[in-house]
Design a binder for these strands. Structure first.
Lengths: 152, 152
DNA sequence: GGTCAAAGCTTGAGTTACTGAAGCACTCGG
DNA sequence: CCGAGTGCTTCAGTAACTCAAGCTTTGACC
């Protein structure tokens, strides 16, 4: 712990630790807000992933899990009235998940109630916000595996 | 979307979206690396939380879940030989989870194999690393709910 | 046009994660 | 000693997740 207060560049391990801690704390804030509205974190995450209509299979890709798993999650969202399955024009195999108005409202409410996250943002300067946002934007394609340009 | 390339300060919603995307991508990289070693993400997360010996109850706090849940997770880690339960000196109710040498090795291997994350770090400048690390450090106490100073 | 591989979704079996309530073992204050 | 409280486990019960198998539909190939 050599506490030089000058700007020493953090090691990868330190960065990873910091990122993991922030990611975990963010996720807990998210899960807690979702739970207040009777949603599990998986359901809320799925709801956030269908702000645009998305076929089941693509949703599985976004959530990083098996397609068979998505069936159950969407079943529950549907029974809660937060999303619907619609037939795809042109391919009758495909079912497209569409968020309902109520689903969109709950989603917005959840995001608005993530108080720790909002507090964290308020604790940041404008420069920090700009820096964080630009770092995220730059790093996301790499982190999400969309390197090069062979998209899709 | 006025795309002025000058530094416009992102809204809270934009920041939240960016943070969520990066957090999710990081987590998937982590889960994939853990899966390659036969661990679920919960198990790997728990393993990372016991680099220092931790009582069961405190571990539940770190993982943000019920204590009864931790019983099962540690059961599985123990049966894999990655952690052990030890009696606490001074209070025979308490069981302390201690990582084994093998557990530590697997943990290090998992962290080393998070290739997307490492790629992402390599894509950052020193200034960006410093900025990201300092933002995380500043924001974490707020985000994790340790405001004020009632630390315990 | 018929056939067949492949794609998209669901179902079923089986494991893990998670919660809440109840239970046991232990501690600590009276 | 007794009783309240703490720490861990056990027991239902649900959700999340995976893999394999099944069904429908599509599209290519003969």
């Amino acid at each position: 712990m050599g506490s030089t207060s000058t700007t020493t560049v953090p090691t990868n391990a330190e960065l990873m630790e910091a990122l993991a801690a922030v990611g975990a704390a963010y996720f807990q804030d998210f899960a807690a807000a979702a739970a207040r509205h009777g949603l599990s974190s998986s359901q809320a995450k799925a709801l956030g992933a269908v702000q645009e209509p998305v076929p089941m299979r693509a949703l599985a890709g976004r959530l990083g899990c098996d397609a068979s798993n998505v069936t159950g999650i969407v079943d529950r969202l549907e029974s809660l009235g937060l999303a619907n399955r619609e037939a795809a024009a042109g391919d009758r195999r495909v079912k497209i998940v569409v968020i309902t108005d109520e689903g969109r409202e709950i989603l917005n409410r959840i995001r608005g109630e993530m108080s720790r996250t909002h507090q964290a943002f308020e604790a940041m300067t404008d420069e920090q916000r700009v820096a964080l946002h630009s770092i995220c934007a730059q790093v996301l394609p790499v982190l999400a595996g969309r390197t090069g340009g062979v998209q899709q």
